[in-house]
Design a protein around this nucleic acid. Structure first.
Lengths: 203, 203
DNA sequence: TCGAACTTCGAACGACCATTCGGTAGAGTC
DNA sequence: GACTCTACCGAATGGTCGTTCGAAGTTCGA
């Protein structure tokens, strides 16, 4: 049976906070040890709960995993849409989008690593449709911006399709090496990527 | 107890061929369903063996996984070393290296996906030292070439460190989208990546 | 202060799974 | 043709794990 938040509004905030803690902790632990290799025991211990306590917030271990992915993709997609809503110069839109994206990825390191590790799960099964769709939608947004850059400047390799793959690769891979507090800020990284793509245009 | 190949030389070739089949099949199935989510039953079924048969070739399921990663990294590292042994123009060496690398990744799709999925395993534990070292060595080779390109042309963003991360991201991500028989050959892809990195230099 | 709603506990359960091992059939060797 | 090495089988085993559920403790609202 799937759990539901408390009906009394006064308790809602605490419930939500607690649930967030569960998700964030799980993202970190799953990223470190792997989803399957983390038992519910270990997981709940890391949150200060007993094993049964998890099921107060989530129907199952898998639903927790889905929530991690949703909390990664949904806000990113929404913010990207807001960013691209007003018209603007394509290359400036591209830069703003990549900045947002890199910052998001860096701030959700655990979520992102889990998302990548469990790619094979995400690509099958009905429960994963929302995650799949969100990713697809986001990639479409990026592709759209790249196409506009290409149409305006004609500087991207290959009509932009290889550029899309390259950009996805660079940004998603960031989480594997980037550590906050290092020499580069997320902004530096994002601009570095964009500069690579736009290097052939006049700057 | 770890299994050993037959002592009689006449039987060795067949044993090796069979063992290769096990590794390649496992790479494909693990990539598709995930390592932990594939039972030894399912796995051996896909090879035409009964569950116990696996242990004729591998000590454990985990040792099979290690072998998959070794068979991915070791030949790549060796070929890369051969390629870089003779002196040559840095940007030509870079191009040749990326061509080799992309081709290898595309030809070992399953191995590569498994390698990425099980990153968290690879980063801990003594059994994984060889895999870790191979990857490290390979990344050092790439970094070395990039440094030489940078020293000669001074065109890479950020002394080449961000360029290294970008290149690793692009190439490793290739396995997520590239399908043989499509519009692009592995060569096109590799050259596309290199052109992105070298775009600011005279071409 | 009382009762209802909420939160957590943790032992128990049933399912699954990696690995073992005694057995078998066939291929190679003399 | 007998003996040995090789390849594989597949039921049995021991252990682990996700999930359940009744009870206990806590917080809130009246």
């Amino acid at each position: 049976m799937q759990p539901s938040p408390p009906t009394r509004p006064a308790l809602r905030a605490r419930y939500d906070r607690r649930r967030e803690l569960v998700v964030d902790t799980a993202a970190r632990v799953f990223a470190e040890r792997g989803y399957d290799q983390t038992s519910v025991q270990e997981l709940t211990e890391a949150m200060g709960l007993a094993s049964g306590g998890l099921y107060h917030y989530f129907e199952s271990k898998q639903h927790l995993l889905i929530e991690i992915c949703d909390q990664l993709m949904d806000p990113l997609l929404e913010q990207a849409r807001e960013l691209l809503a007003p018209d603007g110069a394509p290359d400036e839109q591209l830069r703003a989008l990549v900045r947002l994206w890199v910052a998001h990825v860096v701030e959700h390191r655990g979520h992102m690593l889990v998302f990548q590790q469990e790619r094979h799960l995400i690509e099958r099964g009905d429960e994963w449709r929302n995650v799949r769709d969100s990713r697809k939608q986001f990639e479409r947004l990026v592709a759209g911006v790249l196409e506009r850059v290409h149409r305006e400047d004609a500087v991207l390799p290959d009509d932009g399709r290889l550029a899309l793959a390259a950009l996805l690769g660079m940004v998603n891979h960031t989480v594997q090496w980037y550590r906050p507090g290092g020499r580069l800020t997320p902004l530096d990284v994002a601009d570095g990527y964009v500069d690579l793509l736009l290097a052939r245009s006049a700057r």
